[in-house]
Design a binder for these strands. Structure first.
Lengths: 344, 344
DNA sequence: CTGAAAGCGCTTACAG
DNA sequence: CTGAAAGCGCTTACAG
């Protein structure tokens, strides 16, 4: 017996057939208790661990989950979401004995090819579908590929996959309510791309909340989610004829860039301009002023998504899961507008 | 023929044996040109793509590379290195038909277990060894696991693995030279953990450059690389009896936090305090003042490391690779010290 | 409850 | 240059 022990070695040592070893090791019924004990201790003594490759071939499973990230490197770099999300996913996978196969592609063109490749090669048993877009083609594709999946948030069309959602509209709504209660009546929103569902969902939440709060002027500027574009949007807003007194950003990097633009223009934050971000990145806490933001628990989201996907792979029928909503956290970058604080 | 076509289907269609199909598909010598052509077109017509699982089992290869990241989530979130590094890795892997298996673990205890698991399960054919530490136990472990690897940077002990390095000391040196030439004589360094090789290497480079430039006072404060600890270190420095007029930070998140601390204390940057970062994160460009930093090309580093690891797996003997050094980029956060600008 | 055998879909010596 | 066969190390009906 050279090299690592195989199931045959265990069978020989326990004096049974390979098949029975397989049954015992996989906790399948129909093995006499004492036989099972004998097999298990033989395996233990030999230091046996089954070959994943052989299991993969005969059981037609990859024992791995796939995550394809299609983002411009510039956006990915500043975004705190994925590292935390992945850490959460891994916390569930390790115990389940599964691995995470990650594919980072530069654009949406190569994205579908990545899904096809991962599925075609039988690399994964299911996919995490993040960054959902309007009429997202990946849903039909993965369905056609006959693989289970879990979507982060609800798609804008019927989907065969369970959704694990974290309501981000509540956070945006709280941010607007907070600003309105401070007396702001001209509030702008620096939004993400309209075709990204979390971009448009936050924008809609902003507009609805602004209307509900009786905000007089509620402007929206769309961006590509990069800090650079957030800076550009901020400049446009501040150079406008009737600039807002508060800006709700759709992510933290843009809010940080917006803060820089304001300061550069000699506009004091929060005295002359209030700013809120989204994602509660650690760095926002250390800025001056520290950034009010909507805090999301990306790690918990990853763990929940992994649990649901694991269950889906095991063939369980699942309903959608709703996580605790993202919460608005007021720090120093929000304050009453100048006009409201000055005596009338 | 139901399901996806197998090598037997191709063999039948081309009228040859499975073995010959395998030879033709893998570009091995000893197949008559016209037979090869017949096999290839049969495969094409059937839409055949070989089963990775079967290949893995019979060839004893995983066709995947492993990356284990052991970092506190807080550090990972703010760090622009890994997203860019991974994007670079993937740019090489896709064409080679390999996948990236990612494991994110919360601490160094679970780290070695992750390497063992990935190797024991035969998940990967080699490892990327990043974030090298002093006397790094992973080098001996991976060697014992009999898998190839590539290290980012040179370990502090003899290593059986090729190293792909990007000299970051040149960037630190330029930063110090730049500050010294502006007239700074009290410069501090907010360093990473001394046990992390890139932390101590940058610290050593700082001290050497400070000495070479005749800097009078060169303080070093060690941190854990988090923004929070960078803020703490900055406060300590500024509250000292003879505070520095310039601070060289070992990464951008700490520099950004340090900027916040200074501004919060009413210290104007760069007029009263110069600041430099490390990594050239996009967000630094949009701060006010924009952050002078050492720019590294993490994506190119990832691509180079992947090429070297791929070659190592193919059994090539490799020498170490040196990438273009990280460059210091002066932006707005560095200026002459107050005393130097005031008339003597 | 247990054994013997076929099968997953490739690769790789070994013959001819 | 080509074929037939064994082997990679498991899982899974099928018999008993």
């Amino acid at each position: 017996m050279r090299g690592r022990p195989t199931i045959s070695d265990v069978a020989a040592k326990a004096g049974v057939s390979k098949g029975l070893v397989s049954f015992a090791l996989n906790d399948r019924p129909g093995v006499a208790p004492e036989t099972r004990e004998r097999i298990l201790s033989a395996a233990r003594e030999l230091g046996f661990s089954p070959s994943l490759r052989a299991r993969s071939l005969s059981s037609a499973r990859a024992y791995a989950l796939g995550l394809v990230i299609a983002r411009d490197p510039d956006i990915l770099r500043g975004d705190p979401f994925f590292p935390a999300f992945i850490a959460g996913v891994e916390s569930e996978l390790a115990t389940a004995g599964l691995a995470l196969v990650l594919s980072v592609v530069p654009d949406e063109e190569s994205e579908l090819a990545a899904y096809r490749r991962l599925a075609g090669d039988g690399r994964v048993d299911g996919f995490f579908l993040t960054d959902l877009r309007a009429h997202d083609p990946r849903i039909a594709l993965v369905d056609e590929l006959r693989l289970p999946a879990v979507t982060l948030g609800h798609p804008d069309a019927p989907s065969p996959f369970p959704a694990v959602s974290m309501d981000d509209t509540a956070g945006i709504t709280s941010a607007v309510e907070h600003l309105a209660s401070l007396g702001h009546s001209r509030i702008a929103h620096v939004a993400g791309p309209g075709r990204m569902l979390h971009g448009s969902r936050r924008r809609d939440a902003f507009l609805a909340a602004a209307e509900a709060c009786g905000v007089k002027q509620a402007l929206v500027v769309e961006t590509d989610f990069t800090a650079a574009d957030g800076a550009r949007a901020t400049r446009e807003l501040l150079e406008g004829s009737d600039p807002p007194t508060a800006v709700v950003y759709s992510n933290d990097p843009m809010a940080i860039a917006g803060l820089g633009v304001a300061q550069r223009a000699g506009i004091e934050v929060p005295r002359q301009l209030s700013i809120t971000g989204f994602d509660g990145s650690e760095i926002g806490e250390h800025l001056h002023p520290s950034l009010s933001s909507v805090v999301t628990d990306a790690s918990a989201w990853g763990a929940a998504a992994a649990r649901v996907l694991l269950a889906a792979i095991d063939g369980e029928m699942l309903h959608d899961t709703e996580l605790p909503p993202a919460r608005f956290l007021a720090r120093e970058s929000t304050a009453p507008p100048e006009t409201a604080t000055s005596p009338h």
